[in-house]
Amino acid sequence: MRKVHAPRFSQLCLFFVMLFLFMPLIVVAAYSFNSGHGMTWQGFSLQWYEELFTSSHDLWRAFWNSIIIALTSSLTATVIGSAAAIGLKWWSFKLSGYIKVATYLPMILPDVIIGISMLIFFSSINLPLGMFTIYAAHTTFNLPFTYLLVDSRLDEFDFSTIEAARDLGEDRKGAMLRVVVPSIMPGVLSGFLMAITMSIEDFVITFFVSGPGSATLPLYVYSSIRYGVSPVINALSLILILASMALAFIFRRFLKSFAASA
């Protein structure tokens, strides 16, 4: 069969999209190896990597803050979101429709509004801003995603398999653990990973609810570029880009093998 070429205009579009998408990343990656400080190329060096790993104490603190917040809030959001999805599918009651809509709210509201309303809320109940408030905020905005992914998984779930499990000798708990949980696992996992990503990258909401000493990585980066971009950030960026790519790749393989087995 003759290969059909995409029209010229489409090719052009593709080219520019790729350019805008990847050029900045490539520039950042390249300049992380620059031996100079500014935007002119002064030769290859690993000095920024050295600085990153030896004398960037605040940066690492922010990094670990991010990781801790991401893991804890995603875990909480995944547990609550999955339970909510199962519960709302199982028992439909008068309010369940409203609850569903309410769950989507944090997803569609602008971050600024969520951020500021949380700030007002936390200060009105005299909760000191810090790691805990960030954790609470992240859990909240992650919930819709974990809920949604498990819920869509449940749409395909055949509820009569629960009865089959009961019929075959499992009690309620056994049926839940041996039938429901394995069936929704892919949804739970993708929800969890999505929540981690969203939590690590969030800036706006975190900005409002963070307190002294609780800066996350995005906040740290933002505050440090106000004094000029340090190439250390470039070095960190490249590491993060590579790490996320590796994670995404592993996750894809993992999901694929799960899908094949499902």
Binding site: D158, S160, T161, E163, A164, R166, D167, V179, S261, A262
Partner: peptide
Amino acid sequence: EKRPCNMVFQNFALFPH
């Protein structure tokens, strides 16, 4: 789960995983 009977469901209800 305690009854001495087992059922073949109208849609089979096999465990997909």
